[in-house]
Design a binder for these strands. Structure first.
Lengths: 220, 220
DNA sequence: AATTTGAGTGAACATATGTTCACCGAACTT
DNA sequence: AAGTTCGGTGAACATATGTTCACTCAAATT
């Protein structure tokens, strides 16, 4: 029975500011939700008490941070948006893989998804699923992602003959294909299995179809 | 306090066979789940009691038909598969719209989805969402749908230069695009709004990209 | 130094949940 | 006509849920 006063400060020696403390437990709630998703649960079926339990906090404390579960969900969506933006940023930084660019990009993306499996599991699941509010928030986020991608391609001078609206539309298609693939990536047994290779190959070929279609696109 | 014996037969005059009765309540449970989905709930968040309540049956009765909620979910997936097969069958029967075939097909599909909104809402939601079991079942069903579609296109002599595997891969892409669009169709306010027209237009253009890509596809 | 603030507590509330079980009675079998 | 089967009942169970509220006590403000 070691001493453990409510506000024990076991390892965080320096006094912690109030706003910092608040931000910390807020983050803990978010992480708790993700952790539960990681254990195979789907966000829609999580309960407030489960989350606070996982976060190591009393149920009532939840309300100091979010009005309800949808609001926590929105925070997760935002985190998803940040993640997608990071993907684009890294792509800009590293440039397009020199050889076999499509397969290269797919493998980079696959790694990216696997390293952030929880966020992608959440997005892939709630994109078509959860509450209407969440779905729309994710749609908006996906839309921004597609627009940014279109802008990047424009800057890179890829497919310069396409109108901006056509480019944007095509990026939308690429994004849905990517997010759909994320779900596949997360479900296929990782390791060099046959299934995994087939999945990657299929993904590559689908993107190739899209890009070929884009190259030959003519406005109405 | 009107008389209402447990097994009241208020309007179903002719005696009902046991198997028929069982099939009937089984169907009621399925319909109840769909009805709740129709009220904006997502399948993953439904409870056994909610469903039996909606079905007008005592909770324990559930177990006479399904081991657990996943098993009911699988029944819904199967119903979804049947629905998709019917879509193909109707497409075969009615043939391809004579003029502006792509937009025509999209409008037919839109109508089809709207008329069966509950099943499509379920599939679109649980495809990336629900339990692993459900996700895989839906993946399998989608796969069959894509294969059948490929076979139909082959028989129709559409894109005869494509190998079967390429055709199959492209149909897979079409299917994910369709199911993704189903979610959009169900969320956009129906009626002749601007949003609705834009959504349809985007969907048409995306399919067009895919088909252009298919026409110019060359094997590796 | 005295006061105010507010994140987190702990207990209580009414209500909901999944699962079990002995039981009923109509449909089936003999 | 007598006996069996089995879909559905109703009650009970232990446990889980969302929300509220007065409370604490350290950090922030005065």
């Amino acid at each position: 029975m070691a001493a453990s006063t409510p506000h024990a400060r076991v390892e965080t020696e320096p006094p912690i500011s109030r706003s910092a403390r608040k931000a910390r437990t807020r983050q803990r709630l978010i992480d708790a939700a993700l952790a539960l998703i990681g254990q195979g649960r789907s966000y829609t079926s999580l309960s407030l008490r489960e989350i606070t339990r996982e976060a190591g906090v009393v149920p009532g404390a939840f309300y100091r941070h979010f009005r309800d579960l949808d609001e926590l969900g929105l925070a997760l969506v935002e985190m998803g948006g940040v993640t997608l933006r990071r993907l684009l940023r890294e792509a800009r930084r590293d440039g397009i893989p020199p050889t076999d660019m499509l397969r290269g990009s797919v493998l980079v993306y696959k790694r990216f998804v696997e390293q952030r499996s929880l966020v992608f599991r959440f997005i892939a699941a709630e994109r078509g699923g959860g509450s209407r509010i969440l779905r729309n928030a994710i749609r908006t986020e996906d839309g921004h992602f597609a627009s940014e991608m279109a802008q990047d391609l424009r800057v890179l001078g890829v497919m310069p003959d396409l109108s901006s609206s056509a480019l944007r539309m095509i990026c939308g298609l690429v994004v849905t294909t990517m997010l759909n693939a994320a779900s596949d990536i997360l479900d296929v047994p990782s390791g060099q299995t046959v299934q995994e290779r087939e999945m990657v190959e299929n993904f590559v070929r689908q993107l190739r179809v899209i890009f070929i279609g884009a190259r030959h696109w003519r406005e109405d």
